[in-house]
Design a binder for these strands. Structure first.
Lengths: 193, 193
DNA sequence: GGTAACATGTAAGCGGTTACATGATTAG
DNA sequence: CTAATCATGTAACCGCTTACATGTTACC
């Protein structure tokens, strides 16, 4: 039985359980989307249009179990892992394959070609890259409480994953700051001597 | 006139000119693919199936100029930027918009859920992440001579972009190594005391 | 009373990959 | 002689995003 990566994301978050309010393991599609935005967004994204059909498929395959749990008149369908679902998740985690890493960064791309434009434009590029990573950093710090909740439940890896994300963006901040200085020094060499 | 990001990648590499053998500015679709693999792969990828149709479109729009330049009986179609193409590239570079950054990393994803499995599996995950980035680092170092060629032509940003890529992967190597040690210490607490 | 958040879904489209097809040339 | 590289393309498919549709509840 072949599952898409998105399927495993859903299984994984159902296992982690609610990130913000610790009810029990059961979660809605909406909750999953919110959790992804809170903890995984830096390295993975998933849209509602993927989540809902995927949950249906997973239920048909017996990897998750859903039940209606409306709040008043507001529809709400919550899911939890079956033992088959947990097994599928663990099999995926242990699977011995080199995991795919894909980065698509328009900013780096523009920087690569920045010799075609004035240094001022390049500096702007570097600055906006830096600011983007600074924002990502505070987003990770903002998601830190969510990690703490996981940790309270005995899950230590959400915070560790956040650490890696933070290190990546810190590296970008440091390097772009350095390059900004370098390019600016070339722009105004009149000041030297 | 709206262009896709892939279109700008092609324009950008045509402007940079040949990365490995400095002929003149003209380049084939095949060359573009090779250059991307050599210098931009860490943060952007593009497949032949995108390049060839896009070159045709760009020629129709007058942003590139192509001519046949066969090597013996082997077909070869080389392109160079028109002044309109150069202008389009510069407009894009200077355009004031927050550039999109998208990361899709299965390894990080697995790590996020690693509490579901034995610590040994998590350590394996961390190790393969580290090795992946170590490989990326040597790929960047391997592409360094290509950057030097650009620099010889007066283009300084290819190397600078490489510096950022290297910093990112160095950060991953450092952080995963640290986490490996941390998890291993928890696995074998018997040794303590 | 209005806006934001909660909540679930569908349809269309597109950007991109995989696989295939074809053939020439060079290096070992 | 054969494998690798050079070189250009097409067709099919698919994962994913955007946009849309719909209604509820909480909060200011």
């Amino acid at each position: 039985m072949e599952l898409s990566t998105s399927a495993y994301v859903i299984l994984g978050f159902l296992r982690l359980g609610p990130i913000d309010e610790p009810r029990h393991g059961a979660r809605s599609g909406y909750d999953i989307k919110r959790s992804v935005d809170l903890t995984a967004r830096v390295f993975w994204n998933i849209s509602p249009a993927q989540i809902y059909p995927e949950l249906k498929k997973l239920e048909e395959e017996g990897l998750v179990r859903g039940r209606e749990e409306p709040h008043g008149k507001r529809a709400r369908r919550v899911f939890e892992l079956t033992s088959e679902g947990e097994a599928a998740l663990q099999e995926w985690l242990a699977r011995d394959e080199t995991a795919a890493l894909e980065i698509r960064d328009e900013a780096m791309l523009k920087l690569l070609f920045a010799d075609a434009v004035e240094p001022e434009v390049a500096i702007k590029l570097l600055r906006s890259m830096r600011e983007r990573s600074e924002q990502a950093l505070s987003a990770i710090v903002g998601g830190y409480p969510a990690g703490l909740i996981s940790e309270a439940k005995g899950d230590k890896f959400p915070i560790r994953t956040g650490l890696i994300g933070a290190a990546i963006h810190q590296a970008i901040v440091d390097t772009t700051r350095q390059l900004e200085a370098e390019v600016m020094a070339e722009t105004a060499p009149a000041k030297a001597k």
